[in-house]
């Protein structure tokens, strides 16, 4: 991973909410998600973020049937944000890329 150029997005999958359906894997344009090997407590092989390449587009979020299995983060653009806000994560207010 190129440390100097961080990914625009970041993905977090709650392993315990995921049902391993693979729809997010299919949906992700840069193919940044894959199905893991571990079984979660329901016996599903949960999806996992490959750790690189997420653009923060939110496409996987809308394709996922589970309410809170996926959370998508986006890199804060420090040039456009006021300094005081730069470290406060904003919740859900950014419109979905697919919207």
């Amino acid at each position: 991973m190129d440390k100097l150029k961080p990914d625009r997005g970041l993905l977090k999958i709650d392993e315990n909410e995921c049902k391993g359906c693979g729809l997010c894997v299919e949906a992700c344009p840069p193919r940044a998600i894959r199905i893991g090997d571990r079984l979660n407590h329901c016996g599903y092989r949960a999806a996992i973020y490959t750790g690189a390449g997420c653009t923060g587009c939110g496409i996987c979020f809308m394709a996922c049937p589970e309410p809170g299995a996926i959370t998508v983060f986006r890199l804060v653009d420090r040039r456009t944000l006021p300094v005081s806000d730069s470290h406060v994560p904003v919740e859900g207010a950014v419109p979905c890329a697919s919207n």
Binding site: F73, L75, V94, C96
Partner: peptide
């Protein structure tokens, strides 16, 4: 949500509030 997230990132898409 559990686990620390890089402070350079902010939530873009998460569980809608209209869900419990």
């Amino acid at each position: 949500m559990s686990g620390a997230v890089d402070p350079d990132y902010t939530v873009a898409h998460s569980r809608p509030k209209a869900f419990y």
